[in-house]
């Protein structure tokens, strides 16, 4: 965190052009300049291996509070690996190893004394495929609060979560119906409600709309604009337009040609990434020349 913050108003865009050079934390200021945002994640030199395979190279970036940060890139570039490393969902994968540091509000997520169950309580995640539990709509949302000892005011909590996930009006008359009776888009919003019912600090969304139709996708995107006032959101998407629509910041990952390893190419304001990227690989990708 040495000199990178600087006094520049524009967030600094950092280009990584080889494994030897380590990227320095990028954007330190928000779009309006001036106010310095609090970092939620401060990721330093993160690298990930699955067994012998290197999945992600040196990644250094900062994710700031109450912003939507999008992670884009072609298939296999390590987007999912990256986001799943932010709440330790990769821990259960055999051979998973992580290098560097992932600081969450200054705490090392992978430190020995860090409890990964507690980490996931604070850092929620919504997956590509909607995965409601085979229970009622109400029980889906109430399940985690019940099991985490947040039993008082459960009805209000469930309603609040469903409202914030913009699905309350559609389900309020059938809370006892099975969650599996909902459409895919509704199921995904239910999963978002389920995540925010435990009042996490961060929401990680791993391609949340890729299995949904355009209408449901639009609903999820609208939702994100509202949710970012309460939560810090990181979203992986392979849909560039989606990133452009919802994200304040965008990180572009790509596959390194030489060693087929996922690499952070460029990170900065979404506008900059899409209109004036510094790296030719980013330009090729966002203009649709590859990937």
């Amino acid at each position: 965190m040495s000199s990178s913050g600087g006094d520049a108003i524009r967030p600094r865009v950092r280009i990584q052009d080889g494994s030897a050079s380590r990227p320095v934390p990028a954007a330190q200021r928000n779009d309006n300049g001036g106010t310095r945002r609090a970092a939620v994640f401060d990721i330093r030199d993160m690298s990930v291996h699955y067994g012998e395979n290197r999945a992600l190279d040196w990644t250094t970036l900062r994710i700031d509070r109450n912003l939507v940060t999008a992670v884009i890139g072609p298939s296999g570039c390590g987007k999912s690996t990256f986001i799943r490393s932010l709440n330790r969902m990769n821990d259960s994968i055999p051979g998973f190893r992580i290098g560097g540091q992932v600081l969450y509000h200054g705490h090392d997520l992978y430190a020995r004394q860090t409890n990964r169950v507690e980490v996931r309580r604070r850092i929620g995640m919504v997956f590509q495929k909607p995965n409601p539990f085979p229970k009622s709509i109400y029980d889906n949302v109430a399940w985690a609060p019940r099991n985490l000892g947040m039993k008082s005011g459960l009805d209000e909590r469930v309603e609040r979560a469903l409202r914030h996930a913009a699905i309350w009006d559609e389900v309020k008359d059938r809370l006892r119906a099975s969650a599996l009776s909902l459409s895919g888009g509704q199921q995904q919003r239910l999963c978002i409600a389920r995540s925010i019912a435990v009042e996490p600090d961060v929401l990680l969304l791993d391609e949340p709309a890729s299995a949904l139709d355009p209408v449901a996708t639009a609903a999820i995107e609208d939702l994100m604009h509202n949710l970012k006032h309460r939560y810090t959101i990181v979203i992986v998407t392979h849909n560039m337009q989606q990133a452009a629509r919802v994200a304040d910041r965008t990180a572009f990952f790509s596959l390194d040609e030489r060693d087929r390893t996922g690499t952070l190419v460029e990170y900065g304001d979404t506008d900059t990434i899409f209109t004036n990227p510094a790296d030719p690989r980013t330009r090729d990708y966002v203009t649709g020349r590859f990937g």
Partner: peptide
């Protein structure tokens, strides 16, 4: 489905509770 385990894990609930209730 694996998604159910991911879902319970991502909510910060201990595995044994997830096993018993989901």
């Amino acid at each position: 489905p694996r998604g159910l385990r991911d879902g319970t894990d991502a909510l910060g609930v201990d595995r044994w509770r997830a096993i018993m209730t989901v």
